[in-house]
């Protein structure tokens, strides 16, 4: 009985926190729309880690991630007037970040096709501070994820790491829910095949 009480209190406080955050988001967006720079800075501060993680997992390069993150927030600032508030602010940011990242990867692919080093794909620069000292398994894991096609990788990251629902991902990528599900399933199967030999 006491466990049940503690659990329900925990659940309630979590729901309240989420609702408060949503309200905060809406309030901040309204203020930022009316030209309040501090409100926009606060929105950046609240969402920076989520966006950074997504872009970094996609590109594997900190410098490029910072550039793309800057582009994302700058685009958000410019287009803030067009944000109607139908979805959560972070979903909208995810959409911008996803399209910027996919465009970057497309450009990179085209450039690598024309460059002399086309035969040797770039090693993802995971030897960054937060990855130093990681085991071989983690390296293999990261490489396995990195080998996924960009769209599958994006869907996998949004679902697995950012814990978004399939309808949310479908909304972010402007795709059908079934397409998103199929892509996620394919990504998991590919990962399973690549990481067959270790458990």
């Amino acid at each position: 009985m006491p466990f049940l009480l503690v659990f329900s209190y925990y659940r309630l406080s979590k729901i309240q926190k989420a609702k408060r955050m949503e309200l905060d988001d809406k309030e901040l967006v309204t203020k930022a729309k009316s030209g309040d720079r501090k409100a926009f800075d606060e929105l950046v501060r609240l969402n920076k880690d989520k966006m950074f993680a997504l872009i970094y997992r996609m590109t594997g390069d900190r410098e490029i991630t910072l550039d793309l993150l800057q582009d994302t927030f700058f685009a958000a600032y410019k287009e803030l007037g067009g944000f109607r508030g139908d979805s959560r602010f972070y979903s909208w940011l995810y959409r911008i970040a996803s399209s910027k990242t996919l465009n970057y990867l497309k450009r990179k692919k085209i450039l690598s096709f024309f460059s002399l080093s086309a035969g040797t794909p770039d090693e993802p620069s995971y030897n960054m501070p937060d990855n130093v000292g990681f085991s071989e398994i983690n390296d293999r894991l990261i490489k396995a994820v990195d080998l996924l096609p960009p769209k599958q990788k994006l869907i996998f990251n949004l679902r697995f790491f950012d814990r978004l629902s399939f309808p949310d991902i479908a909304g972010i990528l402007n795709k059908g829910e079934s397409t998103v599900k199929t892509n996620y399933q394919k990504a998991i199967e590919k990962l399973q095949n690549q990481l067959k030999d270790f458990r």
Binding site: A53, L69, Q70
Partner: peptide, 26 residues
Amino acid sequence: SLEKTLTVAPAPSLTKMEFSKLQSKL
């Protein structure tokens, strides 16, 4: 096991320096 392995990797995050650099550029 795959899920466990994948969740072991910490979420990448911005350092304070990187964030201040981002803010000033933005």
